[in-house]
Design a protein around this nucleic acid. Structure first.
Lengths: 352, 352
DNA sequence: ATAATTTGTGCAATCGATTGTATTTTCATA
DNA sequence: TATGAAAATACAATCGATTGCACAAATTAT
């Protein structure tokens, strides 16, 4: 347990140890240790005396020593596909906020969407003897053997966003289905007749959810599902452009693109404009993730706020509660759809 | 020293120690330790035998134990203003690449441009007994007393981008002066007559450099310096908008805005468009940092690639070399100016 | 063949905090 | 006052790797 008593920085002096305190108070080091840890076997008088002196000296426990003894380093590993993406860096922010308060440090790794790098990161983290791992799967990860090994070994794990759905592990996700459903329904209500879907790999839970949200919205509004209006991409701008060209071949042609990612949506948007379609008058485009650029492009892109900070916080809480209970609980966070100009068909009606 | 021999992950087994190896080979643990560390006092035969068995068992040293003994944890602290900004996350990528290869772990903190948070982060890092600190100053940091304390205490430090200029510390910067000079000169050559400058706090080296690059370019091209064309902002979009309105009051009115940051530049751009100026025909705008959104806005924003990855790598190298030689050496990286539509006056001439 | 080196290993202490097991102190009760 | 239980504290081992020093073995010199 840590004492966060912020005395003035005294970095000139050497770090003091419990032995220094013990000597000064003419008691044993073990008593000091117990006093600092509020062990009930220590009398209130001694405890206060020790804590007061420790605070006065700005004592900070040597984490290496206590880690060695306790066998755990109060460090948790975090693996994200990419630290650059605002969604993930927000998540990290949320995790850090919760965990640093609980005395944990973070070790952050990037998988770059590669399974090999993901395994490598897990290696690194295990060698560092982290107390647990919080992660979001790479795009390539479809087989969970490497994760199961860890789970069997009793490693605490919490997943966020991209979770291994066939494993009973703790995780935090947003309601992707609801977000996609809401967007699709809204577009249909606005008068778009044939929304298409540019999705991601069906191997990944979030993309499956987004697709099924789209499909369910079509059904519940009585629209027909057109197979050629549905495609999978790699979620890049280039992939979006390609998807646009392909889907526009079909008959009937769609007049809206519900994309499972912002980059792909941007690609669709650019390709649409390039081919002299008006957005949103002729074609609506929506993305997913509310990346930093989405409000700044022309027209601003409708997207989904995935509540990264909130997700990070929840995941961290789950991790902290998980002392014993890795029971595969899933927290679902409500996303927020940010409707922007790229889907505002009525804007043309209003412009009189 | 670490052995990066990647045997198949064997996380089911307990971690083995040098004592296990010693017992198996019927030698002492100290010999094992020395053999693994390539200590010359150990015979080649023993060394090979030990290393082979260690590799076979997938032995990994317990970092906590060796940290405790050696008094250093093979961890370096990194403090950046904000992990979200692509420039900084690229730097982190570069640092990680170099340092993880050298067996170091990273502890990443954000200052959020606040001096208090910066101090807090330094606290945290010192308590974690990091081996050194790599950082970029917060905007608020103007007094370096807290850093000097650390330096006097012998803490290894390397700065990047925002460096404390009155301190003889190692650092990596880009040639901000050259970048600003180049942009300003180019704009004048393109026919813009009165470039203005939207700068950041003069307390920070990079903003001073950018401003002086702008000024020197004016001088060397024989343009006059107009005081009312120069302003300081907080480098936000809002700040950029405000700067635009203010500067446009002056006589003569400027026809170009060299901004020291992308957000401010975007603010200027938006405000210009809002006031029915054409960009780049009437007014040119340039930013700094090549943030992710810059190529995607309308018109795409001229900016400066600050070579974050490269800067991170160099900073890490400096850190590694610095075992003894903290002699205040500065590495200067050549930036790359990315001219985009927002400064292409001739585009109008070409449109025939 | 013996002394003087050189070379290779082992022993034991150490880093600082934690914790099971004494041991001492305190206090109440007989 | 002696005795037992309870409360408070001390002792010592431990976590795993490192390292100064001692010691043994092998090699060279005399």
């Amino acid at each position: 347990m840590y004492f966060h008593i912020f005395v003035e920085m005294n970095w000139e002096k050497k770090h003091i140890t419990i032995h220094d305190i013990a000597r000064e108070l003419k008691i044993s080091a073990s008593t000091v240790s117990r006093a600092l840890n509020n062990n009930p076997r220590i009398s209130a008088a001694t405890r206060d005396m020790v804590q007061k002196l420790a605070a006065a000296h700005g004592y900070q426990p040597n984490v290496m020593a206590s880690s060695l003894r306790k066998g755990r380093g109060n460090t948790v590993g975090v693996i994200v596909p990419n630290i650059n993406r605002s969604f993930f860096s927000n998540i990290i922010g949320g995790i850090e906020e919760k965990l640093s308060g609980a005395g944990f440090n973070l070790m952050i790794c990037q998988s770059n969407e590669s399974l090999d790098k993901e395994k490598e990161a897990l290696q690194t983290l295990m060698h560092a003897r982290v107390d647990g791992i919080m992660m979001s799967l790479s795009m390539e990860t479809q087989d969970y053997a490497h994760l199961e090994k860890l789970l069997n070994r009793g490693i605490r794990m919490v997943f966020f966003d991209r979770v291994p759905d066939t494993l009973a592990v703790d995780g935090v996700v947003i309601d992707d289905h609801a977000a996609a459903f809401r967007i699709t329904t809204a577009l249909i209500e606005k008068g778009y007749r044939h929304p298409a879907h540019v999705g991601g790999s069906g191997k990944i839970n979030v993309y499956r959810q987004r697709k099924s949200g789209y499909l369910d919205a079509l059904k519940s509004s009585g629209s027909q599902v057109i197979a050629s209006h549905i495609t999978e991409t790699d979620m890049t701008r280039q992939g979006g452009r390609k998807a646009f060209r392909e889907i526009m071949q079909s008959d009937p042609r769609p007049d809206a693109f519900i994309c499972a990612g912002d980059l792909a949506a941007h690609g669709v948007l650019l390709e649409a404009l390039k081919n002299h379609f008006r957005v949103p008058e002729d074609i609506a485009v929506s993305g997913f993730a509310n990346e930093e650029f989405t409000p700044h492009i022309t027209p601003p892109l409708t997207s989904v706020d995935q509540k990264g900070l909130e997700m990070g916080r929840q995941a961290a809480s789950l991790f902290l509660e998980q002392e014993a209970t890795n029971d595969g609980s899933r927290i679902v966070i409500e996303p927020e759809v940010l409707f922007r100009l790229s889907t505002q068909k009525e804007i043309t009606l209003r412009t009189e």
